[in-house]
Design a protein around this nucleic acid. Structure first.
Length: 502
RNA sequence: GGGCUGUUAGCUCAGCGGUAGAGCAGCGGACUUUUAAUCCGUUGGCCGGGGGUUCAAAUCCCCCACGGCCCA
């Protein structure tokens, strides 16, 4: 095989390779880079949406666009084509007696999928469509492979995820989703900036994977001969920054959890964590309401929207309910039974939870909560008063040392955010880590490890602080009405497959 | 990890024991205002891979690979 030769026994490719040979023979550069389009499709369309034929005829201005040739309707010596750029599509009219002979020769060798440049005046067709009358046309990049079918687009989900470029070309709604994802993250940054938060970046490779309860990915640094973990959360580093006096910090970036994959979990996912000194978890509830309302207002122009056929109403204030009240009201537990471990275990087993006899009471209660209550929390709900046993980094409640000043936000039956007043008492933090170590020894490989370095930092005094983590992918799912997390992550993790057939 | 389900032409799909099909795309022809343009003609397949059953397998059975949905 000669280098640069494309080896595939496919008639469609052969035809295109023949066209390429003909273009080369005519001295056409197949991949030039000297062209600068002056306009975008949407800019032209919005600027001239109300201009009629006469108005356009008065215009002497020429417009130029570049993009992917998406459709071609040929009429002998003329044609209508659709060109798609990042903003949308516009039609162009090609006629043999308007283009130069050289440009018309190139046009006759084009295929749907090629990247081209067109310039010319605007006019309206008989059917009143705004159209560029091509006086110049250039090939900018020749496609060798055919695009998916124009009408149905690309629907095979596996191909859509593995070849996202095709998905983005063929399915406008997909492009719209990722534009919106970017917009949402931008709105969050603006909101945080308005509230005087500092955006920071903390290590993704950590010697101990702390800040959450999850199984980490392990890796190794060769020169330092040191095992490292991909972070499961940025929490402990962000709190060091609060101790360092930054007081209001946030980070929007990837965390990694070595766990299963489903419609709500991808092994790498994006989270925003933020910490605010001199605030409590209660302050963060209203802060969260404001943030989400701000996003909803910008995206939808209101606080009500539909997610998977169900109306979500983000009008503050949102429902607030304690874990225990939720278990009583929504799982049907007896108030008296909540403190009797034997009865709680019995209830847990009855509901199908996989619990161990020696698990702490709080952990079993949360297992029941996850099994029974979670899916019922459709409208935005803050669940509060978590057991200390499942909250090793949260401050104990002043009213009850067995619960912590913490909430989780549920929307559409899914955890979207987790927040608490931070534990800044180094002695208590040490006790909590030691409790976690006992659970690790009892077989819980997700339990937290001792982090002396973090405790050492707390010993320099961290101000009273509240912090929160928000699952950005899940938030984007809500605001884009996406059923699967894979629809809001450009390249979701899939099992490796033999490379695409060459 | 378990259950259900999918993998057939470049794409979207039908066929479900008896000679592999359609639409779109492609190719050839007609056509200078189309909107999934139209009309005529036409090329294209290791039916995901491997084993079986059968006179005969895309179709039935088993294993494997890669997805999807639901559950753990």
């Amino acid at each position: 095989m000669k280098s640069g030769e494309i080896m595939e026994d496919n008639d469609l490719l052969k035809v295109r390779l023949e066209k390429i040979a003909a273009l080369k023979a005519a001295g056409i550069d197949l991949y030039p880079n000297d062209i600068k389009p002056q306009n975008t499709t949407s800019e032209i369309i919005s600027q001239f949406s109300s201009a009629d034929s006469d108005a356009l005829e008065q215009l002497t201005q020429k417009f130029s666009i570049a993009g992917r040739l998406m459709a071609m309707r040929n009429f002998g010596k003329a044609a209508f084509i659709k060109i798609q750029d990042r903003k949308g599509q516009i039609q162009s009219y090609i006629a043999k007696d308007i283009l130069s002979t050289a440009a018309y020769f190139v046009f006759k060798k084009l295929d749907v999928g090629d990247i081209i440049y067109v310039s010319g005046k605007l006019f309206r067709t008989k059917t009143n469509e705004l159209t560029i009358e091509a006086t110049d046309l250039r090939l900018l990049s020749k496609a060798i492979r055919p695009l998916p079918e124009k009408w149905h687009g690309l629907t095979d989900v596996e191909t859509r995820y593995r070849q996202r470029h095709l998905d983005l070309i063929s399915n406008p709604a997909v492009k719209e989703t990722f534009y919106r994802r970017s917009r949402i993250i931008s709105l969050i940054r603006q909101f945080m900036d308005r509230h005087d938060f500092l955006e920071v970046e903390t290590p993704m490779m950590q010697p101990r994977a702390g800040g959450a309860v999850a199984r980490p990915f392990k890796t190794h640094h060769n020169t330092l001969d040191m095992d490292l973990y991909l972070r499961i959360a940025p929490e402990l580093y962000l709190k060091r920054l609060v101790t360092g006096g930054l007081e209001r910090v946030y980070e929007i970036n990837r965390s990694f959890r070595n766990e299963g994959i489903d419609t709500f979990h991808n092994p790498e996912f994006t989270m925003m964590e933020f910490y605010r000194a001199y605030a409590t978890y209660e302050d963060l509830m209203s802060f969260t309401e404001e943030l989400f309302a701000d996003i909803a207002n910008h995206i939808f122009g209101g606080l009500k929207f539909s997610y998977q056929g169900i109306e979500i109403d983000m009008t503050p204030p949102w429902r607030r309910i304690s874990v225990n009240d939720a278990l009583i009201q929504m799982a049907g537990m007896e108030p008296a039974a909540l403190h009797d471990k034997a009865q709680v275990i019995e209830f847990a087993k009855k509901t199908g939870c996989d619990v161990k006899e020696n698990d702490p009471l709080g952990k079993i209660l949360m297992a029941i909560f996850d099994e029974v209550v979670e899916k019922k929390l459709v409208q935005p709900t803050f669940v509060t008063d978590y057991p200390v046993a499942v909250s090793p980094l949260s401050r104990r409640s002043n009213s009850d040392p067995e619960i912590v000043d913490r909430f989780e936000l549920y929307i559409s039956g899914r955890e979207i955010a987790n927040a608490f007043s931070e534990l800044n008492d180094p002695a208590d933090q040490r006790d909590r880590f030691e409790q976690q170590i006992k659970e690790r020894e009892a077989g819980d490989d997700e339990a937290h490890e001792m982090d002396e370095d973090y405790i050492h930092a707390l010993e320099y005094a961290m101000p009273p602080t509240a912090g929160e983590g928000i699952g950005i992918d899940r938030l984007v799912m809500l605001f884009t009405d996406s059923a699967s997390i894979r629809d809001v992550i450009l390249f979701p993790l899939l099992r490796d497959k033999a490379p695409i057939k060459e």
